[in-house]
Write a protein that binds this DNA or RNA. Structure first.
Lengths: 99, 99
DNA sequence: GAAATAGTTCAATTATATTTGAACTATTGA
DNA sequence: TCAATAGTTCAAATATAATTGAACTATTTC
């Protein structure tokens, strides 16, 4: 695998994003990311088997919330702040403040 | 039935709220409510059997997003703006703006 | 009191999501 | 090249959610 699918900014759908956010584990992941700019999958400090984590990362990525950059053996996750802010102004910041 | 269950403001949980919002039908209901202050269940202009609508109203109510006031044969729905704003500042307005 | 109205609840079905371990891929380092 | 690392994918199991019609409750109106 060389590249992972990331939806385009104008394909993003509010209910899909809110649905991705409407899960305690994924909110926790987001909170971690918000405080760290970029993380690898294994640095999320969430006590779940890696296949379960991988599932949640995929939901976040496919909803458009996070970007996953492949570098060597690792994947670096980051929030798609700028694009999300353009598409849904204020949304992400407000959610993150309220986690 | 005389009263419906409404969670207290400090029992509200962000992931539960986002989960309730993460559905296109419920977002549509919220959008309608946002433009009308108060509506009855049957005035939602959503083409679903009433049992399905009732289900979605319940999800919204139990998450803390809406208030349901019983008056005669009807139930008047409204968004719990003030309380939600206190508990999760900015959240609801941002979501509604972005629907 | 009977019928109409407005909605809820129930039970069954169907659809989606989550969780898991095992097998897999790709990359790095010895 | 071999082993370790970082993560994905698969398939099966389990759990949760959505959808429906029918039966129900409560209220109003005749």
């Amino acid at each position: 695998m060389r590249e992972l699918f990331h939806p385009n900014i104008d394909q993003l759908c509010l209910s899909t994003i809110l649905n991705a956010l409407g899960d305690p584990i994924r909110l926790q992941i987001l909170k971690n990311l918000a405080s760290q700019r970029e993380t690898t999958c294994s640095c999320c400090n969430i006590n779940l088997p890696k296949s379960a984590l991988s599932h949640h990362f995929k939901v976040l990525r496919e909803s458009g919330l996070i970007n996953v950059r492949i570098e060597g053996k690792q994947r670096f996750l980051s929030i798609r702040y700028g694009e999300l802010e353009k598409r849904f102004p204020g949304l992400l910041n407000t959610v993150i403040k309220n986690i």
